[in-house]
């Protein structure tokens, strides 16, 4: 047993588990807010109102057209400068994931709602449901099912994106691995385990999503 507990593969784990907690926290909270943003801006992108559509389009294109690393630095340093306050690192990370994922989720929402057959809305309206009721009870539940695979995909992307927060010294998974080999100079073992930790989350997610996708296909 000793050769295991003495190895760096083992001794890095307490660091990595602490990092994983932050990685998951930032990802989940960021994505929940990102989903709300995505739903709002996704519907805005379907709006016939030019102003609403325009604002949403600017947001989506601005986020999709810039690197997430720049967005992170912009939120952490840029916004603090502008407002003259220090934003807490975790808060900045969550905001960055939310705003970044929100733009991609907006496109997922728009695409899914748009893909529902026009006849569904007509059938809903023709039995007397209002526009909102038709959206809520008829279109949205069907669209949401179609959104599950791309949303799961976005979860994997955002989870990996949190590693970029190591540049502002957020104690997430990658950063904690770096901390370990900074002290021990065992980069190979530490980074191997960092990757294993990411894969433990991402691979089962990918398998699950492929299964959901196949089920939705029929």
């Amino acid at each position: 047993m000793e050769f295991i507990t003495e190895s760096h593969y083992y001794r890095v784990m307490p660091f990595l588990l602490e990092g994983l907690v932050w990685t998951l926290l930032i990802t989940f909270v960021g994505l929940i807010i990102g989903f709300v943003l995505g739903a709002i801006f996704g519907f805005a992108r379907l709006s016939k109102n030019k102003l609403i559509y325009g604002i949403a389009t600017v947001y989506v294109e601005a986020v999709r057209g810039t690197p997430i690393l720049a967005q992170i630095l912009f939120i952490y340093f840029g916004l603090s400068d502008l407002m003259g306050v220090n934003i807490d690192k975790i808060t900045a990370s969550i905001i960055a994931i939310a705003i970044n994922a929100g733009a991609y989720i907006a496109e997922i929402v728009r695409g899914a709602v748009y893909s529902i057959d026009k006849g569904q809305e007509e059938a809903g309206r023709s039995i007397g449901l209002t526009r909102n009721q038709t959206m809520r009870y008829i279109i949205w539940p069907q669209a949401f099912r179609r959104m599950i695979p791309p949303l799961g995909n976005q979860f994997v992307i955002s989870l990996k994106d949190t590693s970029l927060f190591s540049v502002i010294a957020v104690g997430e998974l990658l950063y904690m691995g770096q901390q370990y080999y900074g002290m021990t100079f065992q980069a190979f073992q530490a980074l191997t385990m960092v990757c294993v930790m990411y894969l433990i989350i991402t691979v089962p997610t990918a398998i699950y999503l492929r299964r959901v996708e196949r089920r939705l296909d029929v």
């Binding site: 007509e122 059938a123 809903g124 309206r125 023709s126 039995i127 007397g128 008829i138 539940p141 099912r145």
Partner: peptide, 20 residues
């Protein structure tokens, strides 16, 4: 219009049932 639509039923060529 929602009130009136509920008094006027409509049946479509492609049924448009709610699949969920």
């Amino acid at each position: 219009i929602n009130k009136i639509r509920s008094r006027v039923g409509m049946v479509f060529q492609h049924f448009n049932l709610f699949p969920h």
